[in-house]
Amino acid sequence: MSTGSGVTLEVHGLSKSFGGVKAVDDATVEFLPGKINALIGPNGSGKTTFFNCVTRMIKADSGTVTLAGKDVTRSTPDRIARLGLGRSFQVCRIFPRMTVMENMLVAVRNPTVSALWRGAHDPEQLERARGWLRRVGIDHLEHAEARNISYGQQKLLELAGVLMADPEIVMLDEPAGGVNPALIGRISTLIRELNAEGRTFIVVEHNMDMVMSLSDHVFVFDRGRPIAAGPPAEVQSDPRVLEAYLGV
């Protein structure tokens, strides 16, 4: 299991605009290592763009991102992933024409020649993958093609696939989006367990119940930058937050 509870992720002065619109505007965030961090904010407040800039899926205009003490501002998404930052996507992304097991075997934290060449039918790797599938509860679907399983199962598969690379920091973009309440509960429990094992979580979520019950620390985004941060109870009563959400 993960040992990297101390891996830090710091973002300074990150900006990104599309055309004339500033999606992320000089955002500075220091995530708490080893905790469950949540990112909330109204629609269009730049949370997902922020996510994408941090993981370099989108190139930011300015700002720095520091992961485990390394400046990764000019890095590539795959290198960032290999440094221990795993992520999911807002609209669940799996590899539809590969089997569930094949999906699991894509992520390689340490792609050495021998690992890449042997890996796939290595019993040890298969067992590890099965372990994660069992943990998210879809091990019975191992041989199914990913496009043939349900949306909820795909979401679990995506999560399991990210965990296969054993990331110290897990960024989840709306883990509760588009799934039913029973599954939300299941995902919450899973996040809590994984966090207890030492993984840092950063969760973008609209479901307030989930955010408030789950997270240790909440960052509230509005117009492309954090306007408030703190424990859930504190943030909930912050007037700036109410203003951002309700437009008072």
């Binding site: 993981t55 899926m57 998404p77 795993g86 996507f89 094949e102 992520a107 792609p111 890449l116 042997r118």
Partner: peptide, 26 residues
């Protein structure tokens, strides 16, 4: 059958997602 092959097929399916999982796609 290799792990490398999984990475390649992932590129075929969804290249950006493969990168996000750490596959050195290039």
């Amino acid at each position: 059958r290799s792990r490398f092959g999984m990475g390649l097929k992932a590129v075929r399916e969804d290249e950006d997602k493969a990168r996000a999982l750490g596959v050195p796609t290039f």
